[in-house]
Write a protein that binds this DNA or RNA. Structure first.
Length: 446
DNA sequence: GCGAACCTATTGCACGGCGG
DNA sequence: CCGCCGTGCAATAGGTTCGC
C-alpha cells in the first residue's frame, strides 16, 4: 500500500520535498523506519517533544537542505506553514496517514482549510499532490444509513480536494494481505449470586461512611466536594468491576489502586494530601471488605467453572481465559486484547499473569499516559512494543491506544474483550492481525 | 427526537527536578 | 551545564445519559 507513494517521491532530487503526516508520535518513528527500509531517500523525523517550535527559520532551512522526506505530526506542519518556515509550493507530495481524522478542527483539516484551499482558489498550479490513506472512512457511530456515508465521503473528498478510491471488494485485497478469521465467542452472562450482590450495599455504606468522615474534618467546601466526587467515582469503578469482571478482579483493582506507587495521583489533581489519603483509605477498606468474601487458601484459576458459579469471575472473563487456552500450543504467539477502560486492562493483566496455565507467556497492559490514572510513559510504551516484537511479551491488554498506530507486524491473535464502539474502531483493531492464519475473536453476550 | 452536560480517551506543550 | 524524564495544563473527539 505504501509503496505506491514511493514512486512519486523518488523522482524528486530537486529542492522540493515530500511530507508524510501521521497522527501520533509513535507512528513518526515507525513510518520513518519503513520509509528508510524501502527507499534510499533521506528521511527526517520530527515531533513536538523535540522542541521544534523553538526552531527558527535557519534551523528549518538546514533541515530542508538535509532531508528529502519529512515525517511529522500535523501540528508541526501547521505551525511551520503559519510561520511560513515552509511554503506550500516546496511540497511536491503531501501524504496523510489515517486521513479520516481530517474533520472539524483537527490539524489535518486546518492545514487543508488554511493553506491548500486558498492556493486552489487563487488558481495557483504549484500545489502538492495529496495522498490520503485510511482503512476506514467514517469515524462516527450515529451514521448508519448509506446516505450519511455518502455525505461523509463527499465531505472528505471536498476537504482533501481528492477522490476517494476504494478496492472493489475484499477478495482483491486478499491477494496482498490476509484477513484474520473472525470468530465469535458467545458467553452466557450470569448475574451475580445473591450472596455477593450484598456487596453492592456494603460498598455503598462504606462510601457514605467515608463521605461523612470527610465532612467531619471540616475542610473548605471545594475540597470536600471534589473528594466526594472522587470517592463516588471510585465506588462506581468498583461496582463496574464487580458486575463486569467478578469479585476477584475487583479485589485486584482495589489493591492496585490503594497501592502507593501505582496510584499516586488518581483521577485528577489532588494537591491536598489529606483528600488523597482518604481516597486511598477508601480503596484499602474496600479491599479488606471484599477480601473477606474469599475463602482462605483459595487460588484463582484452579476450577474455572466453580469460580464463575461462585461469582469470583464473570462468564465473560472465563470465556476469555478459555479462548486463550485454546492457543496454548501456538508457537510465537502475539496477541492483543482490546478493552474499554484502563482498570480493565490493569486487572486483566494481573489475572492472566497469575494463571498457571499461561505461565511462560509474557503479559503486559498498555494505556495512554494522560487519562487521570497515571499509568505509563511513552518510553515504557515503546519498550513494551519492542519486547512484543522480540517475543519477550506475548500478550498485551490494551485500550484504544493500540488500535491506530503502533503497527506491530507479527500479530496472530486479536481479541475484542469489549465490543468495538464504531466501525472505525472495529476495522482498525481487526487490522492489527495481519499474519497468515491469524484469528480475530469477538466476545459477545448471548 | 434533540441538545446539553459529563465521561473517557487521546495529543501537544510548558515547566521543574535530577543525574551524567 | 545540558538533556532526560515525569507532571500539570489546555484542547479535541467521540460516546452516553439525562432532561426538555
Amino acid at each position: 500500500m505504501l509503496l505506491r507513494s514511493y514512486a512519486h517521491c523518488i523522482r524528486k532530487p530537486s529542492k522540493y520535498i515530500a511530507v508524510f503526516l501521521v497522527p501520533t508520535v509513535v507512528l513518526v518513528q515507525q513510518q520513518a523506519e519503513v520509509l528508510e527500509l524501502h527507499t534510499d531517500l533521506k528521511v527526517g523525523r520530527f515531533w513536538g517533544e523535540m522542541g521544534v517550535d523553538f526552531w527558527n527559520l535557519n534551523t528549518w532551512m538546514e533541515k530542508l537542505e538535509m532531508f528529502e522526506v519529512f515525517v511529522m505530526t500535523p501540528q508541526i506542519l501547521l505551525n511551520n506553514l503559519r510561520h511560513t518556515f515552509f511554503k506550500l509550493e516546496q511540497i511536491k507530495l503531501l501524504v496523510f496517514d489515517e486521513c479520516h481524522h481530517a474533520r472539524g478542527k483537527d490539524p489535518y483539516a486546518c492545514i487543508m482549510m488554511e493553506f491548500y484551499h486558498p492556493h486552489i482558489r487563487s488558481s495557483s498550479i504549484n500545489v502538492p499532490r495529496i495522498l490520503g490513506m485510511t482503512a476506514s472512512i467514517t469515524n462516527t457511530k450515529g451514521s448508519n444509513s448509506p446516505a450519511d456515508y455518502g455525505k461523509q465521503i463527499s465531505d472528505l473528498e471536498n476537504l482533501m480536494h481528492s477522490k476517494v478510491y476504494t478496492v472493489a471488494n475484499e477478495s482483491v485485497l486478499a491477494d496482498y494481505i490476509s484477513f484474520p478469521n473472525a470468530r465469535i465467542k458467545q458467553y452466557n452472562h450470569l448475574d451475580i449470586p445473591d450472596k455477593l450482590s450484598l456487596l453492592f450495599v456494603h460498598l455503598e455504606a462504606l462510601k457514605v461512611k467515608h463521605v461523612e468522615d470527610l465532612r467531619d474534618l471540616k475542610f473548605d467546601p471545594s475540597t470536600v466536594n471534589s473528594s466526594n466526587k472522587k470517592i463516588s467515582k471510585l465506588r462506581d469503578t468498583f461496582l463496574f468491576c464487580l458486575k463486569e469482571l467478578g469479585l476477584w478482579l475487583t479485589i485486584k483493582a482495589c489493591e492496585s489502586l490503594s497501592n502507593e506507587d501505582h496510584a499516586t495521583i488518581f483521577w485528577g489533581q489532588s494537591n491536598d494530601k489529606i483528600g488523597e489519603k482518604i481516597i486511598r483509605k477508601f480503596s484499602h477498606d474496600s479491599f479488606t471488605l471484599l477480601s473477606k468474601n474469599v475463602p482462605a487458601g483459595w487460588c484463582i484459576g484452579d476450577d474455572l467453572k466453580a469460580d464463575v458459579e461462585a461469582g469470583y469471575l464473570t462468564a465473560k472473563v472465563s470465556c476469555l481465559v478459555r479462548s486463550l487456552l485454546e492457543y496454548r500450543m501456538v508457537q510465537n504467539l502475539r496477541c492483543i486484547v482490546f478493552v474499554q477502560r484502563v482498570v480493565t486492562a490493569i486487572v486483566l493483566q494481573s489475572l492472566l499473569s497469575q494463571l498457571k496455565e499461561l505461565s511462560g507467556w509474557g503479559i503486559q497492559y498498555m494505556a495512554g499516559n494522560r487519562c487521570g490514572l497515571q499509568s505509563q510513559t511513552r518510553n515504557q510504551q515503546m519498550g513494551i512494543v519492542d519486547a512484543f516484537r522480540d517475543g519477550k511479551v506475548n500478550i498485551i491488554v490494551a485500550t484504544q491506544i493500540l488500535e491506530e498506530g503502533l503497527d506491530v507486524q507479527s500479530c496472530n491473535l486479536v481479541v475484542r474483550f469489549d465490543p468495538a464502539e464504531n466501525v472505525c474502531s472495529f476495522i482498525q483493531s481487526r487490522g492489527r492481525a495481519r499474519m497468515q492464519g491469524s484469528d480475530y475473536l469477538i466476545l459477545v453476550k448471548r
